[in-house]
């Protein structure tokens, strides 16, 4: 059984046909990298998977739940799927610890002491155990992004969606964030990431999905697909990013 199952999904923004029949299955523990040119629909697809964006046709089933943008459904889904964004999106008026504890205390009704312990745990995991009381604005981009990952992890999701989470970072900070992802992958976390980090996709990822003009143009085992692309579009894309 797949953890995430995307069936013939179509999405329009007005007249713009952005997703043109996407099929994708992700099993628990898999690390799937979605790659493709700007505007090919990668973010839209990812955002459809947790109800941030609606789709017009087809079906997405995540952890046995039908995905929709209905608030009740999004809240239910949030127990199973986490998301990390390119722009970190930490809450600036809350400390690192408060950012992390917010959802567990509000949504899961975890008591304060337990939430604190949990927050400390996930912070250690991303290598920021000493930042609990600090405000996000005092952290570097790479640290903020790792806090954002920790915040998602605190909800114990079964799958983590990452949309270009290293793209806004200075090059020297990218490594720390990728290391965290690598560790999560090793622990068996299901990851679906939109990324331009080809080395990461090849070395850590199980599978690559190449999107082109709103379709899955080519997909398969990460190492195979990246070493030996079958379509001229993917070949050209790889040539352009490497």
């Amino acid at each position: 059984m797949s953890l995430v199952s995307v069936r013939d999904v179509h999405k329009y923004f007005g007249d713009l046909h952005v997703l043109k029949g996407i099929d994708l299955d992700v099993k628990a523990g898999e690390v799937v990298s979605i790659i493709g040119r700007s505007g090919s629909g990668k973010s839209t697809l990812l955002r459809c998977m947790n109800g941030l964006e609606s789709y017009d046709q087809g079906a997405i089933i995540l952890d046995g739940m039908e995905v929709s943008t209905d608030e009740f459904q999004v809240r239910k889904l949030s127990q199973s799927v986490g998301m990390v964004f390119q722009s970190f999106n930490l809450f600036p008026h809350l400390t690192v610890g408060e950012n992390i504890m917010l959802a567990p205390t509000l949504i899961k009704k975890t008591n304060k002491a337990e939430a604190k312990k949990l927050a400390q745990e996930v912070l250690e995991k991303v290598g920021l155990g000493d930042k609990f009381g600090q405000y996000p604005e005092k952290l570097s981009g790479g640290q903020q992004q790792r806090v954002a990952i920790a915040r998602s992890l605190a909800m114990k999701p079964k799958v983590l969606l990452c949309d270009e989470i290293t793209s806004a970072l200075d090059p020297e900070l990218v490594g720390d964030v990728l290391k965290v992802l690598e560790q999560l992958a090793a622990e068996g976390m299901t990851l679906i990431l939109v990324t331009h980090e080809m080395n990461f996709a090849r070395d850590v990822g199980d599978r690559v999905v190449f999107m082109h003009q709103g379709k899955v143009h080519e997909t398969g085992d990460a190492k195979t697909v990246l070493a030996d692309p079958q379509t001229p579009e993917l070949r050209q894309f790889i040539g352009a990013v490497l």
Partner: peptide, 9 residues
């Protein structure tokens, strides 16, 4: 969006 993703109403 981050807050929605975390499950807040």
């Amino acid at each position: 969006e981050a807050a929605r993703t975390l499950g807040l109403s």
